[in-house]
């Protein structure tokens, strides 16, 4: 079995799963009905993509693994999601900032991943790209609406952009698994996608009359998730997600 491929699939799956879970926390709590439905839909798309990826991982690994083995039966240290997606949902502007950064990243990643020499990854990317296009439209429109809105909404949006900025570097810093996958043609060179991402971000922030967070070249960024070193927040998510399987192992209904 190709270990890098399996680790890479789990990295993508964990990203979508944890991000989807964070978005689902808005279900029934959105600031207005349309936003509530949008965030719940985006959560579902991500959890759906995570399922396709976990199923693929289970098929590769065999050994009695199923799609449920990974989200429910692994400890935090085994999760390979980036830190950005596990941070608490925060206020609405903060959720939008995180979504905008992450949707823009996912849209570029999936577009490039469609060329993967691994047919199943390419198929999942093709399917997900169509959905992420809607997600990015939603989050970038809200960045613009809040940024170019009232004095208060502008301040909140600007603060949210600054707050999550330190977590965006990890998206484009390749882990050992990613370097391996890039070498064997199964994954796109993640670092080469960064300029396109910066362009999407700067164009949107400009339209939103917000300022682009300036950092010196080589500035320090938060990272660790890709290696399994997480913030304390992931533990709280897993406590909730895994409660049933930990209390009643093997429970089904």
């Amino acid at each position: 079995m190709n270990t890098s491929l399996l680790q890479y699939i789990l990295h993508l799956a964990d990203n979508s799963f944890i991000y989807g879970h964070r978005l689902s926390e808005w279900c029934g709590h959105g600031p207005e009905l349309e936003v509530d439905m949008a965030l719940s839909n985006i959560a579902l798309d991500n959890i759906g993509a995570a399922r396709s990826l976990y199923q693929y991982a289970a098929q590769l690994e065999g050994n009695g693994k199923t799609e449920d083995s990974y989200p429910y039966l692994r400890d935090g240290r085994a999760f390979r999601n980036v830190l950005l997606v596990e941070l608490p949902k925060g206020n609405f502007a903060e959720t939008i900032a995180r979504s905008f950064f992450f949707d823009a990243y996912q849209s570029l990643l999936y577009k490039a991943l469609m060329d993967s020499s691994d047919k199943q990854l390419a198929a999942i990317a093709e399917k997900s790209l169509k959905e992420v296009t809607y997600h990015l439209r939603f989050s970038s429109e809200w960045v613009i609406r809040l940024g170019d809105g009232t004095e208060e909404s502008k301040q909140k949006m600007q603060d949210a952009i600054s707050k999550y900025w330190d977590y965006t570097g990890e998206l484009f810093s390749a882990s050992e698994t990613e370097i391996d996958m890039i070498k064997n043609g199964m994954a796109p060179d993640i670092e080469s996608l960064k300029p396109s991402w910066e362009k999407i971000v700067s164009d949107t922030l400009e339209e939103a009359t917000l300022s682009y967070p300036l950092r010196a070249d080589g500035a320090w960024f938060q990272r660790g998730g890709k290696k399994g070193v997480h913030t304390e927040h992931l533990g709280f998510i897993l406590t909730e997600v895994q409660y049933l399987q930990k209390s009643y192992p093997g429970c089904e209904w």
């Binding site: 959560a43 579902l44 798309d45």
Partner: peptide, 8 residues
């Protein structure tokens, strides 16, 4: 073929 990934 599924319509949307998360379609219940």
């Amino acid at each position: 073929t599924p319509t949307y990934s998360g379609c219940p």
